[in-house]
């Protein structure tokens, strides 16, 4: 199968129903995308598929052939993504940091679709779990990124 990830193409030889998460992490060695639950509950594994925030732990690899996949590794090359990262750093969002790749991806997808999100838009898009409770810092950072 041929995958397009962060603008590069990769040939992968795995079972077609392998979750994209494990192809990215193990087969391709990009470990910025995290495993938290494996059942679409936490969002730690969020990547962008054609710009849409997608939980890669329940996305089979054969379903994303022919799409543009973006992972956290390329986030700073994305105009919205780099704004989000700067806002994350400025707001000191991460604590343990484990959920934050997914949070940054979700925020980037939101700003791509809705450059000036309302509080409701933010609440609707930023649904990933954070066990460290960085939720207030996350919404502050999303608001700041939207202003940037």
């Amino acid at each position: 199968m041929e995958l397009t990830i962060n603008g590069s193409t990769f040939q992968v030889d795995v079972e077609p129903d392998t979750p994209l998460l494990w192809v990215v992490r193990d087969t391709l060695g990009m470990t910025g995308t995290k495993y938290g639950c494996g059942v679409a509950q936490c969002g730690a594994c969020t990547v962008l598929i054609d710009g849409q925030a997608t939980r890669s732990c329940v996305t089979t690899v054969d379903s994303v052939v022919g799409t543009a996949i973006t992972t956290i590794e390329a986030i700073e090359q994305d105009p919205e993504g780099s704004k989000v990262v700067e806002a994350w750093v400025a707001n000191q969002v991460p604590q343990c940091g484990y959920c934050q790749s997914g949070q940054v991806m979700a925020a980037t997808a939101l700003l791509k679709q809705t450059p000036q999100p309302t509080e409701e838009d933010i609440a609707g898009a930023m649904v990933n779990l954070c066990r460290c409770g960085t939720y207030n810092a996350i919404s502050a950072a999303v608001r700041q990124a939207a202003q940037a």
Partner: peptide
């Protein structure tokens, strides 16, 4: 003082045991 690990944790570069 700003946390030392803010940027690496905002860009997926921080490495945990699982990585």
């Amino acid at each position: 003082v700003r946390r030392l690990d803010g940027r690496e944790k905002s860009t997926g570069r921080a490495q945990y045991a699982i990585d």
